[in-house]
Simulated assay, not measured.
Amino acid sequence: MISAKQLKLTLVRSLNGRLKAHQQCARGLGIRKIHNPVTVIDTPENRGMINKISYMLKVEEA
Rank of each mutant, 00 (worst) to 15 (best):
M1Q: 09
M1T: 06
M1W: 02
I2A: 11
S3D: 08
S3L: 05
S3I: 03
S3N: 10
S3W: 00
A4Q: 08
A4V: 05
A4T: 04
K5G: 01
Q6Y: 00
L7I: 11
L7Y: 00
K8P: 06
K8Y: 02
K8S: 13
K8C: 12
L9D: 02
L9T: 06
T10C: 05
T10F: 00
T10M: 04
L11C: 07
L11W: 00
L11T: 01
V12Y: 00
V12A: 06
R13C: 06
S14H: 03
L15K: 07
L15Y: 00
N16L: 12
N16W: 03
G17I: 05
G17V: 05
R18G: 03
R18N: 05
R18L: 14
L19M: 13
L19C: 07
K20Q: 12
K20W: 10
A21Q: 12
A21T: 15
A21P: 04
H22E: 14
H22N: 12
Q23L: 07
Q23V: 11
Q24H: 10
Q24N: 12
C25H: 11
C25I: 05
R27L: 15
G28P: 08
G28V: 06
L29N: 04
L29A: 06
L29K: 02
G30C: 03
G30R: 06
I31T: 03
R32S: 13
R32A: 12
R32Q: 13
K33Y: 08
I34Y: 01
I34A: 08
H35P: 03
H35E: 10
H35I: 03
H35N: 14
H35G: 04
N36M: 13
N36L: 13
V38P: 10
T39W: 03
V40A: 09
I41L: 12
I41E: 14
D42I: 14
T43Y: 03
P44W: 05
P44T: 14
E45V: 15
E45F: 14
N46G: 13
N46I: 09
R47P: 11
R47V: 05
R47S: 12
R47D: 12
G48D: 07
M49W: 03
I50M: 09
N51E: 10
N51C: 08
K52R: 14
I53H: 01
I53V: 15
I53N: 02
I53G: 06
S54I: 13
S54K: 14
Y55K: 13
Y55N: 15
M56F: 04
M56T: 00
L57D: 02
L57M: 08
L57P: 08
L57N: 02
L57E: 01
L57G: 04
K58D: 10
K58W: 04
K58I: 10
V59C: 05
E60W: 00
E60S: 12
E61D: 14
A62M: 04
A62Q: 09
